[in-house]
């Protein structure tokens, strides 16, 4: 399948940073990305501090900013951006959502049908007649998403869709985005809300100072098993092993383990850590600096970051068999 978005050698700097927003990039005021692709049916989540370039990247993908160099390719129609604090027109919610269709002169019947369908998808059908500026933050966010969805974009871009909104709206937004991905659309969003990012992301893309960074966590999908009376919980990785985790009531679908919390050893050593899995090295990637990323298949795919020295000492290479150890408390549930 060809990627929905392809980006190569992208460079961008704001022309004249008199703006405080943009000054945060420092003197060079630059976004620089070697390459990034997003597939259909994929939810990609950009994470990073304020001013790291997430919003700028989204605006470049949406075609709202023109890059200084490199290429941004969006296949199958334009990518639509939903802003962090979306602007809703001073009219009814229905009129807001219908507007993109009306300006395209679609027949009344189609406009009505698609508008109502989009409102239903975000759970705002009850509020269709409300004055849009009077909505709450979460409702505004959902209305703005519906206004983008009526156009059935193949790529949906969202800037912090789950920031500063109520829990019910977060759940509604997450449901909509997941559904969009299931329908074959690609979703690219930025967020500060890590739980939301971990629950949604097929891929996490950390950013720092206008550059992409390697991912630092393992994200495992699955479900929690009832801990009963035990003080320790268990998480069933889908299609993989059970791992120990902090005891937790309720439904969790995602377990997150930081890559540098995973210890590799040649033999099964006895430690206080509860999780001990045997696996095969699938790849060893020596990155710039002191660290290497080792990918291990132990029923599920886990990546550990270790020093180059450890790679030598353990004689790590593709195919090596080794033990993977991490504490139950190193597992975070979302």
């Amino acid at each position: 399948m060809s990627p929905a978005i392809e980006l190569h050698g992208l460079r961008f700097s704001y022309p004249d940073s008199g703006n405080a927003d943009q000054a945060q990039f420092g003197d060079q005021a630059l976004l620089q990305i070697e390459s990034l692709t997003a597939q259909a049916s994929e939810i990609m989540v950009l994470i990073g501090d304020n001013g790291c370039g997430k919003t700028t990247l989204l605006k470049l993908l949406a075609g709202l900013l023109i890059p200084d160099g490199g290429s941004v390719g969006v296949h199958n129609g334009p990518a639509l951006l939903v802003h962090q604090r979306p602007y809703l027109f001073a009219e009814s919610v229905y009129a807001n959502v219908a507007w993109p269709l009306r300006i395209r002169r679609l027949p009344r019947h189609d406009v009505r049908q698609r508008t109502l369908a989009a409102l239903e998808q975000v759970g705002l059908e009850q509020l269709a007649r409300r004055w849009a500026p009077s909505l709450s933050g979460g409702e505004k966010q959902r209305a703005a998403i519906a206004r983008a969805l009526v156009l059935q974009p193949q790529v949906l871009l969202l800037d912090e869709p789950t920031s500063n909104i109520d829990a019910a709206s977060i759940a509604a937004v997450e449901r909509v985005l997941r559904w969009q991905a299931e329908c074959g659309r690609s979703v690219i969003m930025s967020t500060h809300n890590l739980p939301s990012a971990y629950r949604l992301a097929d891929r996490i893309v950390p950013m720092k100072e206008g550059r992409l960074r390697p991912v630092a966590v393992n994200i495992l999908r699955g479900w929690t098993l009832d801990p009963g009376d035990e003080h320790i919980g268990r998480f069933q990785v889908s299609g993989g092993p059970q791992i120990f985790c902090p005891a937790a009531r309720g439904q969790y679908t995602t377990a997150v383990v930081r890559m540098d919390d995973i210890i590799l050893s040649a033999e099964a050593t006895v430690t206080s850590a509860q999780n001990r899995l045997q696996g095969d090295v699938r790849a060893v990637e020596l990155t710039a600096g002191e660290l290497a990323r080792v990918e291990i298949d132990c029923g599920c795919r886990l990546v550990s970051t270790v020093t180059h020295r450890s790679v030598d000492q353990l004689r790590l290479r593709t195919g090596s068999r080794l033990w993977v150890t991490f504490k139950a408390s190193a597992v975070e549930l979302y």
């Binding site: 605006k59 075609g63 802003h83 979306p86 602007y87 507007w99 993109p100 300006i103 156009l151």
Partner: peptide, 26 residues
């Protein structure tokens, strides 16, 4: 007016005339 209005109109694919009309309405 909110600076995001212009970008919103652009991303929703409005023509230049449609954008101007909407801005005046807003």
């Amino acid at each position: 007016l909110d600076p995001e209005l212009a970008e919103t109109l652009q991303t929703l694919g409005a023509t230049r005339l449609q954008r101007s009309v909407k801005i005046v309405r807003e």
